[in-house]
Design a protein around this nucleic acid. Structure first.
Lengths: 286, 286
DNA sequence: TCAATGTTGTAATTTTCGTTACAAAGCCCT
DNA sequence: AGGGCTTTGTAACGAAAATTACAACATTGA
């Protein structure tokens, strides 16, 4: 229809798809997206399978590849395979970066992605294994209650961890943010309970205060914070420091979330059958 | 219900081939060799092409894959594709495991970190730029209200985004999870409002229902989901598909959070002075 | 050397896949 | 609100792929 991608066309189909999105209809874009997010495997499947995956009919997929300039689906697949073979020479990330010359870099997306990757790497490289394991043990000790507390932004992380933990063990309590109720909540925290606190920079006074009071009541503090360490690190028994720098007005919590999920995964594994049975029971209740 | 969705737990076909060479006949070995030296592309071609490449007849290739234990050639191809996907989802896991000598690997930490990195890369590599920008525009349109909704685990993400958005613009509302209040909340959603929905697999019925009702009321849906796409993708105007696979019983939301933060960063930048002034005003109020 | 067994390719068959024609549905503009 | 246009899916068709039956060939051991 339009220009046919010739044999010597070195640009990847992925790039070609990205360049063609505007010409596509809504459903065709769905196909495009499925192809890109599962590249190139999705396109190597039979049309029917591809279509089903994109929740679209087979002809829509055909029209999509037709708009890309291929005479037919098999031709499209052939080029995908050829690309796949050529690709094995150089690693993926390099290729992607090379294929995207200056000016084509996605301005607000790529720098952020790079920062998030760097934060993850930087965080996990220095994550203290002993502390990590010790925290997992704490989380798996069913005799202790686990309380979770976060600041303005990190409250979401506290909730996220609470949602998972409460599925694998009893006595998990999220302390809602916003002042007022906190007095009552402190009373619930007893000797040798565990308080997991999230506190990143512009460390929140009320969070710090709550946690300090909890220590005074005999609770053990696990602190998830940034690389510059919340003032709470003095009181905390365990500290997990995460990198949060991002090319933005805001800090990034990606590394904190990853650590939280790693804890969840480890605790679930550690509790083994107990967690499994509990999850099954809860499933049945719903 | 409880099986762990592992990143790649099955041995690769390549290894299986290597292990089976001795049981193969001379011609079948040629096929095996061609497959291994052009792995996996060669096996994704039609039998005839594969056969021609190995200078062997089609039935020989068929007998070869039969000896590998596959009921038929399509089954063989399917597994190759699945393997290809799993590999792209976590290209680092294997390498990292091989690189770090036994005993130095931190068992529950490193695999998770690698998976998170792979998810981030896989997500951002093909994040549709146009959709991303369009969503940012939506978020910055102060004439529209923005409503945020998440499922059991992703509710935290909805809150996280709400916490940031409400600092840079008015009319941001988080829809709390848990049924009951939802009827009322629907009424607040008007024509041309924006509803940002988080829905990852084991897609939640009530979330889907709420969002569908919102569409019926004229709202535009932005869906943040996993690579297999929530059923809501049909209703959604924009879909951001993220990778969520992790070596755990639970899926990982790291990529979702990164996308959310990228949106926040872009929107903050886009609103520029308006956001800045608003933030300052809010600071003064505290 | 011959026979028996195992290996391989040719050709026919069957199934699946890609393709296309057409009708329904959605959308936009008047 | 209605009419024309675009988009999408359904169903029938044709093409190509996978599969199978069988005959030719090679290989080995007596």
């Amino acid at each position: 229809m339009l220009e046919t991608p010739s044999v010597d066309d070195r640009a990847s189909i992925a790039e070609h798809v990205r360049a063609s999105v505007e010409r596509l209809t809504a459903r065709e874009r769905k196909a495009a997206q499925i192809l890109l997010t599962n590249y190139p495997a999705a396109g190597l499947a039979p049309v029917a399978e591809f279509a089903k995956r994109a929740r679209v009919s087979a002809p829509t997929v055909l029209r999509f590849v037709a708009k890309l300039g291929f005479p037919g689906y098999p031709d499209f697949q052939r080029q995908l395979r050829e690309e796949l073979e050529a690709q094995l020479a150089s690693p993926l990330t390099k290729r992607a970066r090379a294929a995207r010359p200056r000016g084509l870099e996605r301005p607000l997306i790529d720098p952020f992605a790079e920062a998030a990757l760097a934060n993850l790497r930087g965080t996990f490289r220095h994550l203290p294994e002993e502390d990590f394991s010790a925290i997992v043990e704490l989380l798996c000790d069913r005799r202790r209650s686990v309380h979770l507390l976060g600041g303005r932004f990190t409250d979401a992380l506290a909730r996220y961890l609470a949602a998972h933990l409460s599925l694998i063990r009893p006595e998990v309590r999220h302390v809602p943010s916003g002042i007022g109720v906190w007095g009552d909540r402190l009373l619930d925290i007893g000797r040798r309970d565990v308080l997991i606190v999230f506190d990143i920079r512009r460390y929140q006074d009320d969070v710090v205060a709550f946690a300090r009071n909890a220590t005074a009541r005999g609770a053990e503090i696990v602190l998830v914070t940034d690389q510059w360490l919340s003032p709470l690190s003095r009181q905390a028994k365990y500290v997990l420091a995460c990198r949060v720098a991002a090319p933005s007005h805001w800090d990034s919590s990606v590394a904190l979330l990853a650590v939280v999920e790693a804890l969840t995964a480890a605790a679930t594994e550690r509790l083994g059958k107990f967690a499994k049975k509990r999850i099954e029971k809860l499933e049945r209740l719903r």
